[in-house]
């Protein structure tokens, strides 16, 4: 019962946060609502036994990336939302239809159409309890996925080098 109440609270937080991102007029509030939505998502992950994903969600998304968003919003000093005029009159209608279509497709995927394997999902609760912990993720990271893990190191290094190269002013 308590678990169910927690789920509904977290789900409400996530959905309300996402709606507020689009609906609120001040970009700063939008960013903060997105943080709330991410925290709700992290809670949902945690209740599903996916500890690692939950922690990463908070640290990377709610922490690092949203901080970057805040910096950008504050640096360009947006007080009020600026609406660009829509170029085509049907843009709004087409966007609504496509959005609803994708939503219906996702619901349909969940309700009826099976995945290739016939299962409804790859990670039922029992399996998640097995693979969701930080320990389990850490284990596959240095065994099965050691090569992508190392390659990610190269990728991050390239990112740093690229940022330094573009940011500094030096000519020989």
């Amino acid at each position: 019962m308590a678990g169910q109440a927690l789920f509904y609270f977290l789900a409400l937080l996530t959905v309300a946060g996402s709606v507020a991102v689009v609906a609120l007029p001040n970009p700063l509030y939008s960013v903060l609502s997105l943080v709330a939505a991410f925290l709700g998502l992290a809670g949902l992950y945690l209740s599903l036994n996916a500890q690692f994903v939950a922690v990463v969600q908070v640290i990377v998304y709610a922490g690092a990336i949203m901080m970057l968003f805040l910096f950008v919003v504050m640096l360009i000093n947006l007080g009020r939302e600026e609406r660009l005029p829509l170029r085509l009159p049907i843009q709004k209608l087409a966007g609504t239809i496509i959005g609803l279509g994708i939503f219906a497709g996702l619901v349909n995927l969940y309700v009826s159409a099976p995945l290739l394997t016939g299962a409804k999902g790859l990670f039922p609760a029992a399996r998640l309890a097995e693979v969701g912990s930080v320990q389990a993720v850490g284990k596959v990271l240095v065994t099965q996925y050691v090569l992508p893990f190392q390659a990610m190191g190269v990728l991050l290094f390239v990112g740093i080098v690229g940022a330094v190269v573009l940011a500094r002013r030096r000519t020989r």
Partner: peptide, 18 residues
């Protein structure tokens, strides 16, 4: 592995953007 395809692609893409 699709995973390695993506990591490799990002390594060279980032370098080429710069």
């Amino acid at each position: 592995s699709l995973l390695m395809v993506f990591v490799g692609l990002e390594i060279f893409s980032l370098s080429l953007y710069v």
